[in-house]
């Protein structure tokens, strides 16, 4: 009887014991990723509820149910986050493959980028500021359209909260994807290059993933929009923010 109790208590402390190695966090993340995708297909691929949201909610629920410390999870999952760097480099390849399209449109891109990337940050800052957001919240919202690896650097530089920024990033990606689809219909825009660019510029990786569903051309323009917005915002925002 005493032995069964021992087993039971060790079973209960398993999440804690196992989170000493990153395998548990990585396994949970993979599991939630595939489960989120499966649920997404099962409920008919709704545009307003992309797999990343489903997966993140699932993952948060499982981590909480296991009584796992979020810090411990984060430490294990750091192994996945490391791959974000090479994955960002990988975006250079579709960029190269679509270079002929980009060459043909370099002028509109050069005109649109600085204005649109600045507006993406300024609209949100003005709205949040007028509703009384604290400086920390403003610093977390400012890079909301920037791809995650760059946005983390910007938020830390501005003194914001990285988890809040990541949440804002995700919501921005999702709603940008929705709004681009809506606005394309209103404004009667069907040029994959423009749609892709708007998706990448406003919706970073989430928008880019959506753009690759539209067409490889849209995907390449999204990668371009995301990359250029990241670079531009990283250079400009620290200057603008302190005004």
């Amino acid at each position: 009887m005493a032995r069964v109790n021992d087993w039971y208590s060790r079973l209960l402390s398993l999440p804690e014991t196992l989170s000493a190695s990153p395998a548990l966090a990585i396994g949970l993340t993979f599991g939630a990723f595939f489960a989120g995708n499966a649920v997404f297909r099962r409920i008919g691929r709704p545009l307003w509820l992309p797999p990343v949201v489903l997966s993140a909610v699932l993952l948060a629920a499982v981590v909480a149910l296991l009584g796992m410390d979020y810090k411990a999870y984060q430490q294990g999952a750091h192994w996945l986050t490391v791959l974000l760097g090479p994955a960002t480099v990988a975006l250079g390849i579709p960029l190269y493959q679509q270079m002929h399209h980009i060459r043909a449109l370099w002028r509109p891109i050069l005109v649109t980028l600085p204005i649109a990337a600045t507006l993406a940050a300024v609209y949100a800052l003005v709205i949040a500021w007028s509703l009384g957001a604290t400086p920390e919240v403003l610093a977390s919202l400012a890079p909301k359209s920037v791809t995650a690896p760059i946005a983390i650097g910007i938020t830390q530089q501005l003194g914001g909260s990285v988890p809040l920024m990541m949440g804002g990033l995700l919501i921005t990606g999702v709603v940008a994807t929705l709004f681009v689809d809506l606005a394309a219909r209103w404004l009667a825009i069907s040029d994959d290059r423009i749609l892709g660019f708007a998706l990448g510029l406003n919706g970073h990786a989430v928008g880019t993933a959506r753009a690759f569903e539209i067409s490889p051309t849209a995907g390449a323009f999204a990668s371009l929009g995301m990359g250029l917005t990241g670079v531009f915002t990283a250079l400009i925002l620290p200057l603008v923010f302190h005004l």
Binding site: Y70, L80, A87, G167, L169
Partner: peptide, 15 residues
């Protein structure tokens, strides 16, 4: 790509 940003995204539920 989505898999790689998930660990960061989940943080918002805990803060």
């Amino acid at each position: 790509l989505v898999l790689l940003i998930m660990p960061g995204v989940v943080g918002v539920f805990f803060t």
